[in-house]
Simulated assay, not measured.
Amino acid sequence: MISYVKGRLEYIGESYIIIEVNGIGYKINIPSSTIEKLPSLRSELKMFTYFYVKEDEMSLYGFLSREELTMFERLISVSGIGPKVAVGILSTISPQDLCLAVITEDIKTLSTAPGVGKKTAQRMILELKDKIDTVETLQSSVDDSRLRENNVSQEAISALIALGYSRIDGTKAVQAVFEEGMTVEEVIKAALNKLAIF
């Protein structure tokens, strides 16, 4: 119903902001990770929004990018995850990391979010795996901050791709075997062994 809200940023709270549009202030719930990315008060701001309607509640949830909004919509499609839990997850884990965690079935990472235990993490993997676009996942795995900061991981993944493996399989294998201090050759060897049993 409300795809986005564009106006002047009037207030920044702990978990929400107020944007004024033509004299009307819209309260928009946001992930806490968004707060540090906001411009200064009185600045022009555009938030992509999701209008949540329930019997006793109407709320707006806002995100700085369409990618975050899309991930939010996917999260609330999982049984047992409502908008507040979904915002909590996105406050803790970026959309890129979420994509990668779901694809690689990384329950540990998913369980770091508030309100997400082992069973919920398993349900997220089960229900989201088919909904994550392969191209998007490839991009997110390349952009993943942990791998971006680690040249050894990147080189190992590139080598596996050159050997004919897909980027997603290469990323998954490297993440599974990588440890600090390993050389590129050691990572490739261990990843190849891992790929043999996938």
Rank of each mutant, 00 (worst) to 15 (best):
A86W: 02
F72D: 00
V177F: 04
G115H: 11
S153L: 14
L126I: 02
I197Y: 05
G62S: 08
L90C: 01
A121Y: 13
V135G: 04
E186H: 10
S153V: 08
S79G: 06
D130P: 04
M1S: 13
S33F: 06
N151G: 12
S15Y: 04
K37S: 14
N22Y: 10
E55K: 12
G13Y: 01
V135E: 07
L195P: 01
P114K: 06
R74K: 15
G117E: 03
K119T: 01
Y165G: 00
N29L: 10
M58V: 02
I125H: 02
S111I: 06
V21Q: 00
L69M: 14
Y61A: 06
F198C: 10
V102M: 09
A162W: 02
D133M: 10
V116L: 10
V116Y: 14
L69V: 04
C99R: 05
E105F: 02
L163W: 15
S43P: 00
S3P: 01
K118I: 03
E73M: 15
L160R: 06
D130L: 01
S79E: 09
R8I: 02
S59I: 06
A173W: 13
V87Q: 14
R148L: 09
V177N: 02
S3A: 09
F63S: 00
G23W: 09
G181V: 06
T137I: 13
Y26P: 10
L128P: 08
M182N: 11
S145R: 13
E127V: 08
E136S: 05
D130S: 13
S79L: 12
G7R: 10
K131W: 07
E57A: 07
K54D: 04
I125V: 05
L126W: 06
Q139V: 09
T70A: 03
K46G: 09
L100V: 15
A156Q: 09
Q139A: 03
